[in-house]
Design a protein around this nucleic acid. Structure first.
Lengths: 261, 261
DNA sequence: CGACAACTTGACGGGCGTCAACCGGAGTGG
DNA sequence: CCACTCCGGTTGACGCCCGTCAAGTTGTCG
């Protein structure tokens, strides 16, 4: 099943989270439900979490490296990423996040942030006290397991990132980023092709792949020239998924989708 | 305290794990105890885990990428590392491990291995059924927290690895590897200098840093020529910790030592 | 219409990869 | 005790992928 993997066909089933549908935490609860399957008590617990919701513009810091964290942030809408800064000022984006993702789960157990979290686009963020989430994890076995599993999947994605920047050339790195994005985010499929709007600038792609913006630009052009993708501004169409996946050396197993306990 | 960090001075306190001292799981229990502090019941539980111990020669696979895992392996003695393989055959070492480390904690919740685990030297391994460890995590809150926290620290190390291979040059990457090694492993200090035996070949250093063996060799020579280290075979002496740390852009915060809950 | 950010293009250079030869110590067998 | 082998380490020559620098273009927003 690995080689015939199709990002569109295998969209994981969205559970019917029985909580207030209009709650900003709904996409988050749905994600947890996908991870382990939550019972009604757990869903009710999440629904009752005290939280505040804020609207944040693109490029804002949600967490700063080195600071102490007392609130976890959950991405309700928009895109965000985690980054680390090198001593010479170089920036490395270590992960990007979609609506429903919890952005700093590690702060439930680690007091100090070892990386920063920043919005990639205008976004809606729900803030929940760390204490509340810790308590929920201790009370509900399923929530604990969902959190833990989510941490483990994150770690797996990091491992793949190390491989990506450590052992693949620019072409594969950029292609891999595109493949991961469309696989994690359900993309719309038009006329047999996969089409989506990439929310990041080429500079951000560069910081995620360990390249320079100039070279990212050339690499994207090269992918286009070879008929793998078509671009119109940040709108991207994948013309040939199989060839892009091959160029990216992309195997979605590391995302650990489709095995919800 | 960060910038004056000294790997020898800040060795975390080893708890008095009250379990059978001769048990192969003793170093593992000691590590968990450092992470969260275990009560006697938890320690007794670990002491009673059914397990088998095997002696393994260097270079053997303990876990293979893509396989289903039913036993967790704990490193009792020796060194090991985790690796992923790229489509073109390139290898990326994503982490290395010391005695007491659990090598595949993620398999408590993820069914399939997304990477391989291999011994770096001759080693002693304790194998514990996944079911037993899952049960222990569900029974003892402290064990659950220790496992989870361990996963989170691992993830933090992966993030730093992404930064290392993505945004630092060869000199900094190799220096960073050395710094991380002496910080995680308590090195012996002789005459004000830090001395230790590096268990890995230059090829393995290359696979961990995303370089080639040839360039690793030149980089090590360069570090030696600049008076940062002295080498005699794989025995390494750090002549100037501060300069090496600066060259490595090394900040040990990402290891999350010294905050045992 | 001006300002700005993002993108694009070209010229040039260097860090690191590649290839290949050689060395040196450890283990092995005669 | 000495050849032989093998793995790991070392060295040199050469070249390419990607970084750097800098100018120019496009789209957007006020």
């Amino acid at each position: 099943v690995r080689f015939s993997f199709d990002p569109q066909a295998e969209t994981p089933p969205v559970g019917h989270a029985e909580m207030t549908p209009t709650s900003p935490l709904a996409p988050f609860a749905a994600k947890l439900h996908r991870l382990v399957g939550l019972n009604d008590a757990a869903l009710a617990d999440i629904d009752a979490w005290p939280h505040r919701t804020t609207r944040v513009s693109a490029g804002r810091y949600l967490v700063r490296e080195g600071t102490r964290v007392v609130e976890c942030c959950i991405l309700v809408d928009g895109y965000a990423y985690c980054q680390k800064t090198a001593g010479d000022g170089g920036r490395q984006i270590v992960s990007f996040h979609l609506p429903g993702d919890i952005l700093d789960l590690q702060h439930l157990l680690l007091d100090y942030a070892d990386h920063s979290v920043q919005t990639m686009t205008d976004a809606v963020i729900a803030w929940v006290p760390v204490k509340v989430m810790r308590e929920a994890a201790l009370t509900h076995r399923a929530i604990c397991e969902a959190f833990w599993r989510d941490s483990l999947v994150d770690a797996s994605i990091f491992r793949e990132s190390v491989l990506n920047v450590g052992r693949r050339d620019a072409r594969a790195r950029v292609a891999h980023l595109l493949c991961e994005f469309v696989t994690r985010r359900a993309a719309t499929r038009v006329d047999g092709r996969i089409s989506f709007a990439l929310p990041m600038t080429q500079e951000q792609i560069a910081d995620a792949t360990g390249l320079t913006p100039v070279h990212v630009n050339r690499t994207l052009q090269s992918l286009g020239a070879d008929g793998l993708i078509t671009r119109d501004r940040r709108q991207i169409v994948i013309d040939n998924w199989d060839r892009l996946r091959a160029a990216a050396d992309f195997n979605p197993a590391y995302l650990h989708l489709g095995q919800p306990a």
